[in-house]
Design a protein around this nucleic acid. Structure first.
Lengths: 192, 192
DNA sequence: GTCTATATACCGATAGAC
DNA sequence: GTCTATCGGTATATAGAC
């Protein structure tokens, strides 16, 4: 399933990342992970303390990757509006949902401060980053002075996370795109 | 757990509704349902064909209830903006998440057209209802002519659904409320 | 580091007595 | 309608050989 150059522990983490994305924490069994990683029981319990420990490694890596991807867009060129737009219109595998956001619907993840931490930190970082960009745009007179950076940032991230919900419910990315277009139309910079 | 006047099949459905909300479909076992309903294996398989059949009854009822609750607010008095605001600011048990929306993160629900149908229909109905209200507001000159009812409606529902994600990630309703305030500030009617 | 064997509990369902 | 018994399979982990 993975390139030969990948260590067993790497294959375990990558398999876990995929399964957590597809099926969540509760829906992912060690057995399924081992089959996908082409590894035996012994390997998993040698490298990791158990399912929660392996999941934590997987979640941390996914969180890190998500941050890097978002940062690349948010640090890109353009006006604040253009950077927000680039983030919202960014190519996504919409029907697969957000590998980080979906974990918030997992009771065992929410019940564990350790597993929840990387999820919280990632979304919080994203909101903070967007809030700064919105504030920047407001100072430039691009956005109305009545807008609050933190609040708009929350609405932006929520629209994306909720867009996944709508898309998966309907089985089509259309609702996600509609929500993004709607938010962008509300956010459109005032004509100079 | 339930009033004595409730039939076994009613108790089974109610227990399933609670567990689906708390733990999702994958995370809910017949055993847990039976314990909560104070019923035996035999009762469940007498009244229902199995777990999917019972879950379907529970989901349909929850969907029906959610529609009725939303309709009560959306059909209420006030301008279109005020009705959208009433919907967004409506009291919610934010940290519990949406009992319908959360099902979209359940792989077994998404894999089954039958289980997914009530979820899809409910969110679709909600979007349609909100789209009508936004269109109404636009005709009244309350909202900019550039806005599209369907798109704004999608953004509204997505903000709510995504708000649950942010709240559950952080363990606090604050992010949900911030997103709602942000969206409302963007939507605020143009001064007449 | 990896393997196989083993363990206890639970999964979702069926059978048949009452 | 409800109960208990039973089923083959899986969940998550440990033990110990190699």
């Amino acid at each position: 399933m993975y390139s030969e150059g990948m260590s067993t522990s790497e294959r375990l983490i990558e398999s876990t990342r995929e399964l957590l994305w597809e099926r969540g924490y509760v829906g992912t069994s060690p057995k399924a992970i081992l089959e996908r990683a082409d590894a035996g029981q012994g390997s998993m319990y040698h490298h990791f303390k158990g399912k929660p420990d392996l999941a934590l490694a997987a979640i941390r890596r996914t969180a890190q990757e998500m941050r890097a991807g978002a940062a690349a867009v948010l640090d890109g060129p353009g006006t604040p509006y253009e950077r927000v737009e680039a983030y919202l219109r960014r190519e996504r595998d919409v029907l697969r949902g957000c590998p980080i956001g979906r974990l918030t619907m997992d009771p065992d993840v929410i019940a564990s401060d350790e597993l929840r931490a990387p999820v919280d930190e990632t979304l919080d970082w994203l909101r903070g980053r967007l809030a700064g960009i919105v504030e920047e745009g407001r100072e430039q007179g691009l956005f109305a002075p009545s807008l609050n950076g933190e609040e708009i940032a929350s609405a932006i991230v929520a629209t994306v996370q909720g867009g996944y919900v709508l898309a998966r419910a309907s089985g089509s990315p259309e609702a996600f795109d509609a929500g993004v277009r709607g938010l962008l139309s509300l956010l459109a910079p005032r004509p100079a």
